[in-house]
Simulated assay, not measured.
Amino acid sequence: MYPYGPPPGPPPRIDARQLRPRRRWFVLAAVIAAVCVGVGIVSFVLTLTSTVDSVDDGKAFTSGQSVSVRIGPDDDAAIYVRSPFVARAHCKIVSGPSDSQPRVTTPESTFTVTKGSGEWERAFVLKTDTDADYRVTCDDPRGALTFAPGDDADLASFVGGIVVTVVVPLLGLLAGSGIAIIVGVRRGRHRRWLEAQAYYGRR
């Protein structure tokens, strides 16, 4: 005999396919996280590759020598110096189209690229209004430096790539986790509601 009535039976079994939101939202959350992490990995690889490729050390030349550099109005070139860069260097454009006005300027910020076993510091930026091949010569008072042409990469573009590498995966993981948590909570509430409906409906 049960003075307060028989004990409650086990909760009704609820088919997972009845629960809302559907489980496909978990898949969507995983896809969002995976895509964002993939974007971060690709961004890191591209940033690292473009930075390393900024220096064409295959065309390196010593003080007093020259090199041919392709320069365009919208695609500035640069001259890098093999570190440690302690001497006062000087570069100038000695040949090119007669109607062009090439300029050699000093960058406002420092930018160093590690390539192989060497470090290269951006020392000069080459600008022109005519897309053509120019011959550039560089020297230093001691005649001891090694130069190399390259692209005018800068710290801002490098930092921008790193920001994408870090921020996009983080946002993707947060978004995916948030969706999964919300869906899990709502499915739990829906399960309890269905169990209550089934339990009281059969009494």
Rank of each mutant, 00 (worst) to 15 (best):
R20Y: 08
I179N: 07
R202Y: 06
A148V: 12
P10Q: 13
A78E: 07
T165K: 00
Q65L: 09
R191M: 07
S54P: 06
Y2W: 12
D131S: 14
A123K: 02
L126E: 03
Q101E: 15
G64E: 04
S68E: 15
S83E: 14
I182P: 04
W25M: 03
T106Y: 06
D74A: 13
V67R: 05
D139R: 09
F61M: 10
R202E: 08
I182T: 15
T47A: 02
A78M: 10
P3Q: 04
L46V: 00
I179H: 08
P141N: 12
G72P: 04
V27L: 13
H190M: 06
K127A: 15
R202P: 01
D76K: 13
D99L: 10
R202H: 10
A33P: 02
R142F: 11
G161M: 01
P73H: 11
P12K: 05
T128Y: 04
W25F: 10
V86S: 14
A33I: 04
I32N: 01
G172V: 03
V39T: 01
H90M: 11
L170F: 12
S50R: 11
F147P: 01
P11F: 07
E195I: 04
P12D: 05
S100D: 10
S98C: 09
R192K: 14
C138M: 02
K115H: 08
T128Q: 03
P84Y: 11
F44D: 01
D56M: 06
I14D: 01
V104F: 03
G184M: 05
G5V: 00
D140C: 07
C36W: 01
L145W: 00
D53C: 07
W120T: 04
T51M: 03
I162A: 00
K127G: 12
A30D: 10
E195G: 01
A132I: 06
R88N: 14
V167W: 00
D140Q: 07
A123E: 06
S109H: 10
I93L: 05
I71F: 05
R88E: 15
V166N: 00
V35M: 08
A132C: 09
D76R: 13
D151W: 10
D57A: 09
R202F: 02
P102R: 08
